[in-house]
């Protein structure tokens, strides 16, 4: 492995100034489950690793009934799903937290790290999109926000400038009659990268049949995770029956433009995009009704 320096700053400003000095030669370390492996396998070249886990803002996990959820970029999955209240309020995120890697990975890996790694197949990104999460980004010029669906720009690429870092995610409190779900298809039952992933959320009218608002997102079918607006358009304002779900699934298949690789063929991934969209919507509805 190449040599690099390691620093664990205690404040956001310290981290920002380190990034300012090193630019693209520095990288924030969260759980390290991707970053350390990439550096070891010569897939990423670095001079400095900045451990984000001692910075309070990056480790914050809190919920406020007015402002909603604040999820620090370095909070490991285990803290999310072991928080009984938060995990129940954001079920799609909870699904993702419970799916990423095995136990050992979930004890380290974070939503923020997963997003910044910007893999098209990342499990947390479609879930974050389904939950309408917004990123808070800090740099020397202050902070700004970006919707998660606008964050990734290609495989391993995103909107973060060389001197910027992801601080946290912000998600509004869930509305009434809300349900969400993330699922993925993998050949085994754990420890695989998604062949296709799908996140969905539904806000239902009080009749619990009509869709007020819907979001459908897909992973591993394009260079970036996708928000499939066409699928939502097939649902909003309509009764959520088998026909509507099938139309949304067809929209998801149409939006998918995957590649063939060792994890699946193009044809199979398009097929799965439809299957998973259907299942994600059915489970979201079930959850909206339970709530």
């Amino acid at each position: 492995m190449q040599a690099f320096d390691y620093v664990a700053p205690k404040s956001l400003s310290e981290a920002v100034s380190l990034l300012e000095q090193k630019g693209e030669r520095a990288r924030i370390l969260s759980g390290g489950t991707d970053l350390i492996v990439q550096v070891r396998e010569n897939r990423r070249d670095l001079d400095l690793i900045v451990d984000g886990k001692k910075i309070a803002e990056l480790m914050e996990l809190s919920f406020d009934s007015q402002s909603g959820l604040t999820l620090g970029a370095c909070v490991p999955c285990v803290r999310f799903y072991e928080d009984a209240r938060i995990s129940q309020l954001y079920p799609g995120l909870n699904d993702a937290a419970l799916l990423i890697g095995g136990t050992q990975i979930q004890n380290r890996a974070s939503f923020g790290g997963n997003l910044c790694n910007s893999s098209p197949a990342a499990d947390s990104i479609p879930a974050l999109i389904a939950h309408s999460a917004v990123c808070l980004i800090a740099g020397s010029g202050g902070t700004h926000t970006v919707a998660v669906e606008d964050f990734c720009t290609g495989p391993g690429r995103n909107v973060l400038g060389p001197k910027e870092l992801l601080v946290s995610f912000h998600i509004p409190p869930p509305p009434k009659h809300f349900g969400a779900h993330y699922l993925r298809f993998i050949p085994r039952n754990e420890m695989d990268i998604a062949v296709v992933g799908c996140g969905a959320s539904l806000e239902m009218e009080s009749d619990l049949r009509t869709v007020k608002k819907a979001r459908v997102s897909l992973g591993a079918v394009a260079p970036t995770p996708l928000l499939v607006a066409e699928a939502a358009a097939e649902l909003e304002g309509r009764e959520l029956d088998g026909g509507a779900i099938e139309k949304a699934a067809a929209a998801a298949r149409a939006a998918a433009r995957p590649i063939t690789d060792m994890r699946g063929t193009e044809e199979y991934r398009v097929h799965l995009a439809g299957v998973l969209t259907r299942r994600a919507l059915e489970k979201s509805l079930e959850r909206a009704k339970e709530e």
Binding site: G102, P187, R188, N189, E190, M191, D192, I193, D261, M262, R263
Partner: peptide, 16 residues
């Protein structure tokens, strides 16, 4: 060889 890791060479886990 594209899948020379335990991630992508999929041996059964206890959950399978």
């Amino acid at each position: 060889l594209m899948n020379s890791s335990f991630l992508d060479y999929r041996m059964p886990t206890s959950l399978d």
